[in-house]
Amino acid sequence: MTPWVLAGTTFLASAVEFVEAATIVLAVSVTQGWRVAIGGTLAATAALFVLVGVGAPILTNALSLERLELIVGPFLILFGIAWLRKAVWRFAGRKAMHDEAAIYAREVEDLRKRERGHGFAVAFQGVFVEGLEVAVIVVTFAASTPALVAWSTGGALGALLIVTVAAIVLRAPFSRVPENVLKAIVGVMLLSLGTFWTGEGAHIVWWLGEETLFALIAGYVAIAALLVALQRRIYRARA
């Protein structure tokens, strides 16, 4: 398994989720102050670190690699399909595009009506919920490829660092980040890695060995592109 695929996937998945979390934290900081926002963010980040730090070693030590792949792979397929079908819906016009500026405006309006202490809970929940999927992805990657744990966790930590620094410098929602495209890429990667690992766990001998992963990526990209074109036509005709 090429380390760059793992690092790239955790980096992109984490970047997308942390960008969403940053929008919520920025809204809290503008309406209820930086201290409340930072407090909620740090508490949620600590909880996620504990989850990854405890979860990955438990999984790795408790199960053989093949059994792990059979548990971890299906989770990645489920996550991958969830991300990729949302991308198909968005590009086919069946669901509104993700818009950080609009979400930010909505959060600010909502938080202005709330009590001051509410901001901590909103920041905590925002960071924890957005980070939970990243934590599960990192734990599954680390458990399936223990030799490459530095790459999979490094990708996620790199994204966390970049988004945090950018949020502090810009102090505005990241509306220029091409989130919809990034989400589609992450969906393809999760679905491909999940298919590959689940197959290995089920003792499938892949046609091209490890290179099969790239064939799976190409196949899922082609299917997603066809689905976008097909659904655009079907649902526009119905509208």
Partner: peptide
């Protein structure tokens, strides 16, 4: 897909990938 991967010895990879891909197609029409 997982059951097919275990129980179709001659078509394991094809059956598994095919059903996984069809699942994605079906899920996208929800």
């Amino acid at each position: 897909a997982i059951l097919a991967a275990f129980w179709l010895p001659h078509l394991r990879a094809e059956a598994f990938v095919g059903i996984a891909a069809l699942t994605f197609v079906a899920a996208s029409f929800e």
